[in-house]
Simulated scan of single mutants.
Amino acid sequence: MNRFLLLIVVAALGLAGCSQETPPDHPRRVPDKKVIETSAFSHQIQLVNREGKKVGFIEIKESEDEGLDFHISAHSLTPGASLGFHIYEKGSCVRPDFESAGGPFNPLNKEHGFNNPMGHHAGDLPNLEVGADGKVDVIMNAPETSLQKGSKLNILDHDGSAFVIHEQADDYLTNPSGNSGARIVCGALSGNNEKQ
């Protein structure tokens, strides 16, 4: 009888232990899955690849914190790739190489790269992390950019600017574009991109 009672107590304790939740791991930062309010963005740019096909868009708005926020939505990129992404000084996307966009947007006269002690360019942006489906949909902030007339950080000056996706990852160090390779996607910003 005592053995039977002991077995019941042990079994009950075992069940109680199984039902208790284990303490959670430290919280990890997971991107918010917020619905993007597209009406908040004042400008929209079409992205084209070297063949001239539309592969997405970028929307731009003044940030509530600092600089500008960019919503980048693109497809038909290399699945799983990390791709360099930069703002260039001219709003021109002449195919096939997009060299018409000129050099990096660099009004503060710095060197390239977040890891460069002499950097970074105002137009340096984080690498785009492409999903297994070849798509990317993300919001980024560039604190040293503006749409304000008269500001030297204005990316919408007399000749506009361009957003360029490269074929490889930016190493965040090497001038002028972090060894990120050829320009494969481009979107030109000018006064014509204002959303109605």
Results as ranks from 00 to 15, higher is better:
Phe4Lys: 11
Leu5Cys: 10
Leu5Phe: 15
Leu6His: 10
Val9Leu: 15
Ala11Glu: 08
Ala12Leu: 15
Ala12Gln: 11
Leu13Glu: 09
Ala16Asp: 05
Gly17Ile: 07
Gln20Gly: 00
Glu21Leu: 13
Glu21Val: 00
Pro23Cys: 02
Pro23Thr: 06
Pro24Phe: 02
Pro24Cys: 08
His26Asp: 10
His26Trp: 03
Pro27Glu: 07
Pro27Asn: 05
Asp32Trp: 06
Lys33Thr: 10
Lys34Pro: 00
Ile36Trp: 12
Ser39Cys: 01
Ser42Cys: 02
Gln46Asn: 14
Gln46Arg: 15
Val48Pro: 01
Asn49Arg: 06
Asn49Lys: 02
Asn49Pro: 06
Arg50Thr: 14
Glu51Thr: 13
Lys53Tyr: 14
Lys54Val: 14
Ile58Asn: 01
Glu59Thr: 04
Glu64Asp: 12
Asp65Gly: 00
Glu66Ile: 13
Glu66Cys: 03
Gly67Ala: 08
Leu68Cys: 04
Leu68Arg: 09
Asp69Met: 05
His71Leu: 14
His71Val: 10
Ile72Tyr: 02
Ile72Gly: 00
Ser73Pro: 00
Leu77Asn: 07
Pro79Phe: 11
Gly80Cys: 05
Gly80Ile: 02
Ala81Gly: 07
Ala81Thr: 06
Ser82Leu: 11
Ser82Phe: 01
Gly84Pro: 00
Phe85Gly: 08
Ile87Val: 14
Tyr88Asp: 04
Glu89Ile: 08
Glu89Met: 10
Glu89Ser: 12
Cys93Lys: 03
Val94Asn: 14
Asp97Asn: 12
Asp97Ser: 14
Phe98Asn: 06
Phe98Met: 04
Glu99Ile: 06
Pro104Phe: 00
Pro107Arg: 01
Lys110His: 13
Lys110Asp: 03
Glu111Gly: 03
His112Glu: 12
Asn115Gln: 13
Asn116Phe: 06
Pro117His: 10
Met118Glu: 13
Gly119His: 00
His120Glu: 15
Ala122Glu: 12
Pro126Phe: 10
Asn127Trp: 13
Leu128Gly: 02
Leu128Lys: 02
Leu128Asn: 00
Gly131Asn: 11
Asp133Gly: 11
Lys135His: 03
Asp137His: 12
Ile139Ser: 07
Asn141Tyr: 09
Ala142Thr: 08
Ala142Lys: 00
Thr145Glu: 08
Ser146Val: 05
Ser151Leu: 01
Lys152Phe: 13
Leu153Tyr: 00
Leu153Lys: 04
Asp159Arg: 13
Ser161Cys: 07
Ile165Pro: 00
Ile165Thr: 07
His166Val: 04
Glu167Trp: 00
Glu167Ala: 15
Glu167Ser: 15
Asp170Ser: 11
Asp171Ser: 09
Thr174Met: 02
Gly178Ala: 07
Ser180Glu: 04
Ser180Gly: 08
Gly181Leu: 02
Val185Gln: 01
Gly187Met: 03
Leu189Met: 12
Leu189Cys: 07
Ser190Met: 08
Gly191Glu: 13
Asn192Tyr: 07
